[in-house]
Amino acid sequence: MMVTDKTYKNANRRERIIFLVKLLVYAGIVFFNLEHPPFYNKFGWLFKITNALSFFLGANLIISIAWLVILSWYTRRHRTKPIEKDNFVLGINRITSVLNTIFFLLAIPIFFGKDLLQLVTSITIVAAAIALLTKDYIANMINGLIIMFSDQLSLGDQVRIGEYKGRVMDITLINVVLQNEDDDLVIVPNSVIFTAIVLNQSKQNIKKMTIEFELDHKRSFTLEVLEERLRHSIAAFESSYTPDSFSLKIIEIKKDFVQFKIQLLLPHADKTTERSIKRALNTEIIALAEGVE
């Protein structure tokens, strides 16, 4: 999900407050565990809870400190980079969530009095077996991290991935979420991105609009007249696209029809304007197909 720089700063401030609260709670738990109050002897389950909490909070605090240090260092070095499109920040947040989840799962057996070293050894063996069975899933997660820590795809980019195209709304460890022209959310697995041809129009700071259509041979027209009529149909939008970028090409000549392709560049990606241009062009194409002068 995209956030503004102000929202991000507020979230960062909130994270710092939560960190201080967790630090105070952790210090209190450690103090009580060291003092070992007498009521621990009566309520053994309470000691197990505080022991598990101290393990989880200790790990969580270390992760939070690393997160704050890395993020502070990165934001100082990239002050001009929009936070809402920053894959590095997104990747760090995803890794932090995964590590916190792992330590939370490790804290559960501690509550039941299990030996941590023996537990980790057992988990390592089980994890190796699971990794063999879920190698595709793990590969997908690794691909997600590669995408996050690269500049090839960023939040808000207008992209085309194979047959899918739209704006990048979110990048997760499993998939990339696109919003297409119909405002539908398209979920593309990360593994597909690494095997498909990806076109990122936002990296060129332009939006290429393409329309393909067919006209029957029975309609008498020349390429010059056809291009002139199509240009005239979008004359009201001359300031919204690069005039020299307009091109009309013949893709293929069939027995009964000719297949064409219109292309033009929009310097600024505006969905409303793009839809209006497409509507004007499609209206003119329908008129041409019906023989309306």
Rank of each mutant, 00 (worst) to 15 (best):
D244N: 12
L117G: 07
M209G: 06
L34N: 10
L99G: 09
F221G: 01
Y26K: 00
I187M: 09
G91Q: 04
E238K: 15
L53C: 10
T96K: 12
A11S: 05
A107Q: 02
I63E: 05
T273V: 15
S220H: 13
I211Y: 11
I187A: 08
G144Q: 02
A236I: 03
I146R: 14
A139V: 01
T96H: 03
K81S: 12
D157S: 01
S240Q: 12
S150K: 02
V177Q: 02
M209W: 00
S154V: 07
K218D: 10
T272S: 07
L57H: 05
A107S: 15
E35N: 14
L265C: 01
E84R: 07
V98M: 11
V176T: 15
F213R: 08
I285H: 10
I161Q: 04
E293Y: 13
K114G: 03
N60E: 06
K207S: 13
Q201K: 03
L215H: 06
R219Q: 11
Q263F: 02
K203D: 05
T7F: 12
D244E: 15
V188M: 09
N33E: 07
F213I: 10
S239R: 01
I142E: 05
V168W: 06
Q204H: 05
M148D: 14
I171E: 07
D270W: 06
L23V: 01
K48G: 01
I18L: 08
I108W: 00
Q152F: 15
S239L: 04
I277K: 03
G91D: 11
E214G: 00
G58W: 04
F194M: 13
I108T: 00
F19P: 04
K114I: 06
S54E: 08
Y26I: 00
K261A: 14
G291Q: 07
I125G: 12
K9Q: 13
N180Y: 06
N87L: 12
D86S: 04
A66E: 00
Y26A: 05
L71R: 13
T283H: 15
N100R: 05
R16D: 00
T210G: 05
R160W: 01
E274P: 11
E212I: 09
R13L: 10
T222D: 11
Y26C: 09
T283Y: 15
I277A: 05
P38Q: 08
I206M: 05
F47T: 07
S64A: 12
V120L: 09
N200C: 06
D216R: 10
Q152W: 10
T4M: 03
L53I: 04
T4W: 13
K42E: 10
N282G: 00
I161G: 01
W45T: 07
F47V: 05
R160S: 13
R94T: 13
L116N: 00
